[in-house]
Design a protein around this nucleic acid. Structure first.
Lengths: 100, 100
DNA sequence: ACATTAACTTTGAATTTCAAAGTGCTTTAA
DNA sequence: TTAAAGCACTTTGAAATTCAAAGTTAATGT
């Protein structure tokens, strides 16, 4: 039988993408700057990881103005939620295995 | 405050290294071929990930002969166990966060 | 007019990872 | 006895990923 690691999703392999998803899982729309500050990454780097998740269809974007400032927010899509759940389940299995 | 992802250990960022550690955490000496088959990776690739963990002092090696065949086995060191525990705790925190 | 904020995109370099082939030693098969 | 195969790597060179830094666009504040 196959090992649990084969159930891990490559899209969530990177810690920053893991961070983005774990934030978006428990909040609704979250804006760029909140993600940036929470995860403590540069804007360019955040943007590129966001783009990767968007490309997979795991998160969606909303652009609008808040007062007079542009504001971009993100949230997880249903398919993103499902995929991330699968990843979390695999991780959980791995944790339980490692702890016996 | 810092996000949980800062507590993740880079040495365990890769799925194969995660797999190696999660196997070694619950077994004593485990040999090269068992790891290779369980994780379904090529020998060269496995060897290089093992080497990375060895370099960090997280696993140790034992070489001997079983019958007439050379046999190399690995097990997690105390420091590897501690480091991996820390990583698992961070992951667990992340899971709980993501699930609310 | 000038700097600033926001949210990127681009570029090129550094790092990581990979498959594939090569290695050295030993055993088993023909 | 020559050949083939197993074991556990190491090496090589290429592909993929990730990064920091700088550039971009469009609006706002001063």
């Amino acid at each position: 039988m196959k090992h649990i690691i084969t159930k891990l999703n490559q899209a969530f392999d990177h810690r920053i993408r893991l961070g983005i998803m774990s934030i978006l899982m428990v909040s609704d729309w979250t804006d760029f700057n909140t993600l940036k500050e929470t995860l403590d990454v540069t804007d360019g780097r955040l943007a590129s990881h966001i783009k990767a998740l968007e490309k997979e269809g795991y998160i969606e974007v909303r652009k609008r103005f808040v007062g007079r400032k542009p504001n971009t927010s993100y949230r997880v899509t249903p398919s993103g939620r499902e995929a991330f759940q699968g990843h979390l389940n695999a991780l959980e299995e791995l944790l339980n295995n490692a702890k016996e």
